[in-house]
Simulated scan of single mutants.
Amino acid sequence: MTDVSLGLPQMPAPDFPADVRARLEADAGELIARYPDSRSALLPLLHLVQAEEGHVTRTGVRFCAEMLGLTTAEVTAVSTFYSMYRRKPSGDYQVGVCTNTLCAVMGGDAIFDELKEHLGVGNGETTDDGMVTLEHVECNAACDFAPVVMVNWEFFDNQTPESAKRLVDDLRAGRTVEPTRGAPLCTFKETARILAGFPDTRPGAVEATGGAGSASLVGLRLAKGEAEPGRVVSPRPAPPESAEGPVTPTGEAPSSHPSSHDAPRKTSASDPEHPAGPVSEEGE
């Protein structure tokens, strides 16, 4: 094999030990059988090999390719596209701080900055004890609980820098940590196996529900007539109305009018005295 980027010989990826491969082949066969086209099982298989090694290695890529009749390039293209597949060793707990718009405004940026200093790591880096990998994440559709921190994709809502630091300290110390809602917390490898499509055997996981918060449900309650509509408050006081109404004799809204910024303006179509003809060659 040749490393295309360097033009140098590339050693073939090592294989799993025989007993591990046999176990993975049995699991992979179960996953592949769920799909009419075997290559549709690629995403679950990538989670499967990630559950084995903690990230997607060259060995895992080779295994997926062989099981699905794909090239390693095809598997690598998919595994490097999705952020849920790790490309290097990572911690038992993936701590993701939402830094998208609302969480950032509500304090997500401050939480992320303080956790970086507290843990002594940067974005995507892992603590020396191998317990925590810190990263910023995009919106997780939990804006009404902002700012949100996720650990192995379980929700920890309404966080502060202080509560987030206690959270990672508890994780590193091996203390029990309970998500705000949803299923009980487990390690990253265990999470990856669940995402591959195998049963979630955690106590209480089946009964656990996430659910939207009250802020997200206001619109639904309004539609059902279960809540009073909100009071509309003008962002600025309305100007006094003149006898001529809110429009000046020129046909434009006065500068003090709330809609003056989008009032009609004179254009070539509405100002016959100043028509705009075709551009002449001299003007080009």
Rank of each mutant, 00 (worst) to 15 (best):
F63Q: 01
L195M: 12
G124C: 04
V61T: 14
L102Y: 03
P264V: 10
A208P: 03
A192I: 12
D170H: 08
A238E: 09
A192K: 07
P246I: 08
V168Y: 00
V132Q: 05
V132W: 08
A263M: 13
M1S: 12
E282Y: 15
P229A: 10
S260N: 13
Y35L: 03
G91A: 01
A51K: 02
V20A: 15
A263T: 14
S5A: 15
P184F: 11
T248Q: 11
E281W: 10
T201K: 12
D113H: 13
T2E: 09
L171M: 02
S40H: 15
E282C: 09
R175V: 12
A22K: 14
G225L: 06
C139H: 00
Y85L: 01
G182F: 06
T160R: 06
M1A: 15
P9N: 07
M11H: 10
T59D: 05
G211D: 01
G211N: 00
T133D: 04
T57E: 09
G219R: 05
Y85S: 00
T250W: 08
R236K: 11
R175M: 13
G197R: 01
A33M: 04
L8G: 07
E125I: 14
M106I: 07
F188C: 03
L119S: 02
L46H: 02
P237C: 13
E228N: 09
T133A: 10
F112H: 04
R87N: 04
E117W: 10
P240W: 12
L70P: 02
C139N: 00
E117Q: 11
A18S: 11
D129M: 08
L195A: 04
D3M: 14
S280T: 15
I194A: 03
E52S: 03
L68A: 05
D271W: 09
Y85N: 01
L43F: 11
S260D: 10
E273L: 12
G54V: 11
M11R: 14
H118I: 08
V61Y: 03
E74K: 12
R23L: 15
G69I: 06
R34H: 00
A192H: 02
A142M: 07
V279P: 07
Y82I: 06
G230H: 09
T76L: 04
R265E: 05
T160I: 09
L43S: 11
R34L: 00
K266N: 12
V206Q: 13
Y85T: 00
N158V: 08
R34S: 02
S216C: 14
S40A: 10
A238L: 14
Y82W: 08
